[in-house]
């Protein structure tokens, strides 16, 4: 599914955000990526969604060599991956329903298909009764569920979440991870970047730890492993 071979990324300002990373993530996995601020987690995600190209090495997702993708091919590629961020990025003037539908409208899905899929998504994120609400009428946790709903609307095979619980209290955070687990069980590969050690320890999964742009641990057993 995701395959990074000796990948390095340096930004134009000279920062080496990632150094010689090799990671393989199989179809259907649920993987945490942890590490301090500035350790390169977001850079890793930007390499996956085609926002940045690796300085060295090879980034392959779903059989696509993302680093070699032409600009014009990036949009089409992105239809196969969903991305969720810490800030919800919902359109305030649109309802929950419309926000999710928006993701499908802009890739020219037929109207009937959109309506049907949005209803399914609302079931998955458990917000059927909020379909007509505006983002400002929702709690943070509910808003984040909407953005997850929007990210999975097009049935992506890979869902990436960059600190999706960063702004949420522990209870809402649990809900979000449980939702991601549900999506994962339905067959979508999930990569979740997080700071929250409690979550990582509670819902144990494969955990990759970044430090200064290096992978310092990759534990299949899950849970947070302190390194000396």
């Amino acid at each position: 599914m995701v395959n990074l071979q000796n990948v390095s990324k340096s930004y134009k300002n000279g920062v080496n955000a990632l150094n010689d990373i090799t990671i393989e993530i199989k179809d259907g996995e649920f993987v945490y990526v942890i590490g301090e601020t500035g350790s390169g987690k977001s850079t890793f995600i930007k390499l996956l969604d085609g926002e940045e190209i690796p300085t060295k090495g090879r980034v392959e997702v779903n059989g696509v060599n993302v680093g070699k993708l032409r600009f014009s091919k990036v949009p089409l590629y992105r239809r196969n991956i969903g991305v969720v961020f810490q800030d919800y990025r919902l359109i305030e003037s649109k309802t929950v329903f419309e926000n999710i539908a928006f993701a499908l409208e802009v890739i020219n899905k037929p109207r009937r298909e959109i309506r049907q899929r949005v209803r399914e998504v609302l079931e998955i994120i458990d917000l059927v009764d909020k379909a007509k609400s505006f983002p400002s009428e929702l709690s943070g946790g509910q808003q984040q569920r909407v953005t997850i709903g929007r990210a999975i609307a097009n049935n992506p095979r890979l869902l990436i979440a960059d600190e999706p619980t960063g702004n949420l209290d522990p209870e809402r955070s649990n809900e979000i991870v449980e939702l991601l687990e549900k999506i994962n069980e339905a067959g979508t590969t999930v990569i979740m970047v997080t700071h929250d050690i409690n979550l990582v320890n509670k819902y144990r999964k494969r955990t990759i730890k970044f430090e200064y742009g290096h992978v310092v641990s990759d534990s299949r057993e899950g849970g947070y492993v302190a390194h000396v």
Partner: peptide, 17 residues
């Protein structure tokens, strides 16, 4: 800019945007 960033993220084509 918000709509544009979402459109880009979900894969709307450049010409569409």
């Amino acid at each position: 800019r918000l709509e544009i960033s979402i459109m880009r993220q979900v894969g709307a084509s450049n010409s569409y945007i």
